[in-house]
C-alpha cells in the first residue's frame, strides 16, 4: 500500500464546464486511478468526466509565502469591476 502512488482527482459534473478538484486516490497506475476515482467520487451521479494526475506532479505555493503572494492585492479595490461607477446610459451589464 505504501508503494502505491497518490493521484489527485478532478471531476467535471453534468452542468459544469470545468473539472473541479474533489480529492485524491491511491493506485498503482493511471488506469487504476481512473477506476478508483470513478468508484469513490462518482457513486452519486456526480460526474461525466474524470481527470487524474499524480500528486507529485503538482507544484504548489507554500504556506509561508502567503503574505507576500496574496496580501498585496487586498487594498487594490480598483481591480474589482464594482469599484467603478457605471454611467446610466450603459444600463444593466
Amino acid at each position: 500500500m505504501s508503494e502505491w502512488t497518490l493521484f489527485e482527482v478532478f471531476i467535471r459534473s453534468k452542468h459544469g464546464l470545468n473539472h473541479k478538484h474533489v480529492g485524491s486516490v491511491h493506485a498503482t497506475d493511471q488506469e487504476m486511478a481512473i477506476e478508483n476515482a470513478r468508484d469513490l467520487y462518482t457513486r452519486r451521479n456526480e460526474g461525466v468526466s474524470i481527470w487524474v494526475v499524480p500528486s507529485a506532479f503538482i507544484t504548489a505555493t507554500a504556506t509561508d509565502e502567503k503574505d507576500a503572494l496574496f496580501d498585496p492585492s487586498e487594498d487594490k479595490v480598483y481591480r474589482h469591476a464594482s469599484f467603478y461607477e457605471l454611467p446610466d446610459e450603459v444600463g444593466h451589464m
Binding site: 486516490v25 491511491h26 468508484d39 469513490l40
Partner: peptide
C-alpha cells in the same frame, strides 16, 4: 481489502 480504494471498488 488491500486498499481502501479497492474495497470501495469491490463493494460497488
Amino acid at each position: 481489502a488491500p486498499a481502501l480504494e479497492e474495497e470501495m471498488g469491490m463493494m460497488n
